[in-house]
Design a protein around this nucleic acid. Structure first.
Length: 291
DNA sequence: ACCGCACCCTGAGCGC
DNA sequence: TGCGCTCAGGGTGCGG
């Protein structure tokens, strides 16, 4: 689900519910590989801590606490972070949606997929982390601790330059699309925005990275940043699960040119959009516009 | 060092 | 209704 724009929109909209508040209690689902830090440790470490700030590193959200420790969250594919009181049908399973009376907007109260609930001392709305597929992650880091998951992240996609990409592509035979998805090269890019940026840059996703020119790398990163900024401005892409912390859908899905448009006409030349598989990910491009 | 692949998990949507 | 299949916005770890 969430790539850089969705994580950034989530950060901006959940920050008011989190920053400056003191955690009174923590509820979790039973331990699973979702928890890099065990639930018992999480409860002990987070209780009575005040959240000082909330940052984004690539697709991670990182909350800094008043003892210098940090809480890092990754939304994986289906992670949803929101405040209690948010309403969205995207927080419900299809069967639960079907059972709803028309036009009703239920308040979500937590379910078996809600793996983390933070309750605050001032009585502010709880912050909930729901994730159906459990590809998300929760980890707590002691003050000053390093972590390989965070340390390996490359330059943030919003700050990347064509030169960053060009340098990483030399002598690489992987598809340029796969390189864009490598968080160690440029952090924050996922499947939607990789496809969209490559379309706008006119570069085929399957091209060997080492055969992409400097000029093309400049174009790819320029288009990537432009697409990411535009997506943030429209609230991200709500295609299946993504919903902002306030329950609002994003709108960027309406502007996408190739992602999940297999067989539909290219918006600039009408050629049907192709779908191939690269690195086990669905990959979409226009066979006429992209070389 | 690099690359491709299996795998982690649950659900939706489809054809039969 | 139900079964079996494919697909899904993520990342890690393994073997060759």
């Amino acid at each position: 689900m969430p790539e850089l724009p969705e994580v950034e929109v989530t950060r901006r909209r959940i920050a008011p519910a989190l920053v400056g508040r003191t955690i009174a209690s923590v509820r979790t689902t039973p331990d699973s590989y979702f928890f890099i830090t065990r639930p018992t440790d999480l409860r002990r470490r987070l209780r009575d801590r005040t959240v000082l700030k909330l940052d984004r590193r690539g697709k991670y959200l990182v909350a800094t606490l008043d003892d210098g420790s940090r809480l890092a969250l990754h939304l994986g594919m289906t992670g949803q972070l929101f405040a209690s009181g948010a309403t969205s049908v995207r927080l419900l399973s299809a069967s639960a949606r079907a059972a709803l009376a028309p036009e009703t907007q239920p308040t979500f109260r937590g379910d078996s997929h809600t793996h983390l609930v933070l309750r605050f001392r001032d009585g502010a709305p709880d912050v909930l982390f729901r994730d159906v597929r459990k590809f998300g992650k929760v980890l707590w880091l002691p003050a000053g601790a390093r972590n390989p998951r965070l340390d390996r992240l490359g330059v943030d996609a919003l700050r990347a330059t064509g030169q960053d990409l060009f340098a990483a592509t030399r002598k690489r035979r992987v598809a340029i699309k796969n390189l864009l998805l490598d968080q160690a090269v440029i952090a924050g890019v996922g499947n939607i925005y990789a496809d969209e940026a490559l379309f706008r840059a006119g570069v085929r996703p399957g091209r060997a990275a080492g055969r992409v020119t400097r000029r093309e790398c400049e174009a790819i990163v320029r288009e990537l940043r432009s697409v990411l900024r535009r997506s943030i401005a429209t609230g991200g892409s709500s295609i299946s699960d993504y919903v902002a912390p306030d329950g609002r859908d994003g709108r960027y899905q309406d502007e996408r040119r190739v992602y999940a448009r297999r067989g539909e006409p290219c918006r600039s030349c009408r050629t049907p959009i192709k779908r191939i598989t690269l690195g086990q990910r669905g990959t979409h491009y226009c066979p006429a516009c992209q070389r």
